[in-house]
Design a protein around this nucleic acid. Structure first.
Length: 399
RNA sequence: GCAGGGGUGGUCGAGUGGUUAAUGGCACCGGGCUGUAAACCCGGCGGGCUCACGCCCUACGUAGGUUCAAAUCCUACCCCCUGCA
């Protein structure tokens, strides 16, 4: 019997929205799920205890191949027992392949068929990242879900440019899969459970790392469909939509998701990479997506913006100077239970690091709780109403 | 008392006759952030009028003066700092 790396069981559907259970070698993840981003082996501004606490209860977080490869290096992490052991996190980890950095570090890299030449943003030294290198690094990190190495084209890429990029991504996907399988056979995956070790997920899983393929094609629906077909033909444990929220119109993002998500294999998890705002999450769940990640809750928290059930709140604004209310009256997180807007503003204005920590915590709580409520609504067949009321709320405006 | 140095917009501090409502930092006000080159970046920041180009006031300790023109030069006064008595 051929055991799989992950299991996905659908529990309920409501329109295109679906809710299920994603089982990994490091725990069970209820979907739809939001995955906090932990690029450098830390969800910035957050302790792991907080991520595990009941008001967050994050089941899976991200790490980044490119960044961890530069510092501290794959070998270092491997020698430290893999990324889980290195950072002290026993729940699930997903690593991005570095494909996004091909886009975001645009000025510092050159793309060839073979791979991508980067100039390190840390010290300027030349680095070469390819599907093979990315797979090797991700095996050394030992993440539970790894991502194929893709090329993320700009959101406004022309059909011609987007097609070339999509085809390159498809060839890289093939190479990613091939190298991934070899590395698994060679036992390079530091996150693998050995015989005799307790595995927290069910016994029908293989204990191996999972690999997701990524669909590209910018805003062109025909390319997106072709990319989906090519990616599914190669065969992955799950499928991701990449290359969105990279400068295109929001309506474009929604129409791509609306077109593609329902065509993705229903028996596999569907991951929309890098998205998004709370509204985006709900809207894309409604279009059939199961998994999300985004830096917004952490980055915007650090830079003074809170997400609430009544929209965004800029803690820097003078109007909160004496406001005794919590960030969000409807939020049950430990920050909202304890601290006022006035205090949080004071912390931010005085440059105290606790401001970033507390705002980050609240934002993560809001994102994760929103997904909890999304799951509940889908499972109780009440998603349509939830969606309407949620969007009304976030558009109503704070204060 | 004598000798030096100095008083500039919320604040610190440039500027030492004309393109100066006055560089810059900070503070303050506002905006942005979507697989993290981000505890970051961008804008505003004397007052009034105008949709806008722009116009008008008020300002460089105080009061006079020189000059076409003064934060910048001269005189007097007030205050602060340092040294000597």
């Amino acid at each position: 019997m051929n055991k799989k790396a992950i299991g996905y069981e659908l529990i309920a559907r409501d329109g295109e929205a679906r809710s299920g259970t994603l089982r990994t070698r490091r725990g069970i993840i209820e979907t739809p799920v939001f995955m906090p981003v932990g690029t450098l082996g830390t969800v910035k501004g957050t302790r792991f205890e907080a991520l595990e606490a009941a008001d967050l209860d994050a089941r899976i977080i991200l790490g980044n191949t490119y960044h961890l490869w530069l510092r501290p290096g794959a070998e270092t992490i491997s020698e430290c027992g893999g990324l889980h052991r290195f950072i002290g996190w026993e729940r699930a980890l997903l690593t991005d392949s570095g494909g996004f950095q091909v886009w975001s570090l645009g000025a510092l890299r050159k793309i060839t068929e073979e791979g991508t030449e980067f100039r390190s943003h840390v010290d300027g030294s030349p680095r070469f990242l390819s599907p093979e290198v990315s797979m090797q690094v991700q095996a050394a990190l030992g993440s539970d879900i790894s991502m194929a190495f893709d090329e993320c084209a700009p959101g406004n890429a022309s059909h011609e440019v987007a097609r070339e990029s999509m085809l390159l991504t498809a060839r890289w996907a093939e190479r990613s899969r091939s190298r991934f399988c070899a590395l698994q056979k060679e036992g390079m995956d530091t996150g693998r459970f050995r015989i005799g070790e307790s595995q927290r997920s069910d016994a029908d899983l293989s204990g191996a790392q999972a690999l997701f393929g990524i669909i590209q094609g910018a805003s062109h629906l025909d390319l997106r469909r072709e990319s989906l077909q090519r990616t599914v033909e190669i065969g992955f444990d799950g499928y991701a939509i990449g290359g969105l929220s990279v400068g295109e119109e929001k309506s474009v993002m929604y129409s791509v998701v609306e077109e593609i998500a329902p065509l993705m294999p229903p028996e596999s998890p569907r991951y929309l990479m890098g998205v998004g705002t709370p509204e985006d999450l709900v809207e894309c769940v409604a279009r059939g997506v199961d998994m999300f990640d985004c830096v917004l809750p952490t980055r915007n928290g650090r830079t003074g913006q809170a997400f609430t059930s009544r929209g965004r709140l800029n803690i820097k604004n003078a109007q909160w100077t004496r406001d005794p209310a919590p960030l969000d009256e409807q939020c049950a997180c430990s920050v909202c239970r304890r601290h006022s807007r006035a205090y949080l503003r004071h912390l931010y204005m005085t440059g105290e690091m606790l401001a970033s920590i507390l705002l980050t915590h609240h934002n993560l709580a809001f994102f994760l709780d929103t997904m909890r409520r999304v799951r509940q609504a889908i499972r109780s067949g009440d998603f349509t109403r939830f969606r309407r009321e949620f969007l009304e709320g976030v558009n109503s405006g704070v204060a």
